[in-house]
Nucleic acid binder design. Structure first.
Lengths: 235, 235
DNA sequence: CGATCCTGACTGGGCGATCAGTCAGGAGTC
DNA sequence: GACTCCTGACTGATCGCCCAGTCAGGATCG
């Protein structure tokens, strides 16, 4: 357990982090702090929380292992901060697009709502050139775990935006009850997991015809599938 | 690494296992071999592969830790055997029900096919009185992992039956192409994960109105949702 | 007897975490 | 400007723990 004052210190720093004083030219202007988070994302995605070794994370970030403890205190805190960073990025974008859609005047079709539900996630997965959807994989395992720590993370970072989408479903399909809107949301997320997990199984089952690495093509099937499902539930 | 002859020995035993010679009355006629598999199911479900400790498994099975190595050699083999046991149980039942459905004469509706897809899994989850769906949780994490070891398990134990269901989808909805039938299967499984993971999230999002512990109620929504999705994909 | 089942005691290794320090550079003082 | 002082960033070495796996031998039984 880290000393109290050290934990407080790093908590304060958190906010005024980005300022990179006199960035050395060879470092791709990514602070060591961010380098640790990036490496953590990769390693946690590959090996899971328990399987990931801080030594490995430190090595990939080209940093002493002790620096991780200096900045984050514990492995658990590192994991939480890593999830918090990318979740904020994705969910801020989701909220923006959803609000824009709903404020545009006139009821938007279900299809567009579902599209907004997933696009920011796949953008986050593809934007960061070499990341290979690492965060998406972390997210899948966190979301599917019944473990209290993981569910707390989901509750904190994903439940608020989930409620917004549930409300949007209810508005788009008024004959859905609230319960069925919640179920619809859960099922939609379940379908989305298929895309985020990128297991390669669709290719195996179709002898190469289906590629779960092609997010755009998947989204083209996922959206109508989910909308059809919701409308069937509406009865 | 275990010695070759020891591994062979336990492999042989595998087959003539069930015979319980002179079962002591206090033990609920479950052999120590099976007790280890049962305990493993629980602990792997709670902590994942890396997080699970053989010591913990041995303790719950009321067995010396070394006995695990005697019967299974390595942690990895134990995991594989544990998955193999329950998978066979579930998938034999799925194959039986699906064949029975298709041989009954006349094209069965999609709804019945999807029902057969999931019922054996939830039965396996509920049958074993005190298990709390432990295996379902293990399965969710294995299926969503891109890790080679996990995908090998899925390929071995679940891909064959998956192909049967894909074929059944194609037969029930002829306008689906083969690719869309595969996608439909993947999405269906994704929706099913929602039920198997039992995270408690539906209750949280609905203020208690939705209960992901009630498998029967969930199946009542999952089946129409998936069928609606497939029919929407059919176009 | 030998074969099989089973155990306690043990080992080497990898883990998260700790800690005593080094170092660059900003602040304060004269 | 030169000096001291301080602080935040960072590191190498190390600690104690717990892990999977080993092994020699005890118990049981045909």
């Amino acid at each position: 357990m880290p000393s109290a004052q050290r934990r407080d210190r790093e908590t304060d720093r958190q906010t005024d982090r980005q300022t990179d004083r006199a960035a050395p030219p060879e470092a791709r202007d990514v602070s060591r702090f961010d380098a640790i988070l990036n490496a953590a994302e990769q390693v946690f995605a590959e090996s899971g929380f328990q399987g990931a070794a801080l030594r490995e994370i430190a090595q990939r970030a080209e940093v002493a292992q002790a620096l991780i403890h200096y900045h984050f205190g514990t492995k658990e805190t590192l994991f939480e901060r890593m999830v918090a960073r990318r979740s904020a990025q994705i969910n801020d974008r989701r909220a923006l697009l959803l609000d824009r859609l709903l404020d545009a005047g006139g009821q938007p079709p279900l299809e567009e709502i579902v599209e907004v539900l997933f696009r920011p996630t796949i953008e986050a997965g593809l934007d960061l050139a070499r990341d290979g959807g690492a965060f998406a994989r972390v997210l899948v395992s966190v979301a599917n775990s019944a473990d209290a720590r993981n569910q707390k993370l989901i509750e904190t970072h994903y439940d608020p935006i989930a409620r917004k989408f549930v409300a949007a479903f209810e508005q788009a399909e008024p004959r859905l009850g609230h319960s069925d809107a919640v179920w619809s949301y859960m099922f939609a997320i379940g379908v989305g997991m298929t895309m985020m997990a990128k297991t390669g199984r669709p290719a195996r089952l179709s002898d190469g015809a289906c590629d779960d690495g092609d997010a755009e093509a998947m989204l083209g099937r996922i959206v109508p599938f989910i909308c059809g499902g919701i409308r069937a539930l509406r009865g």
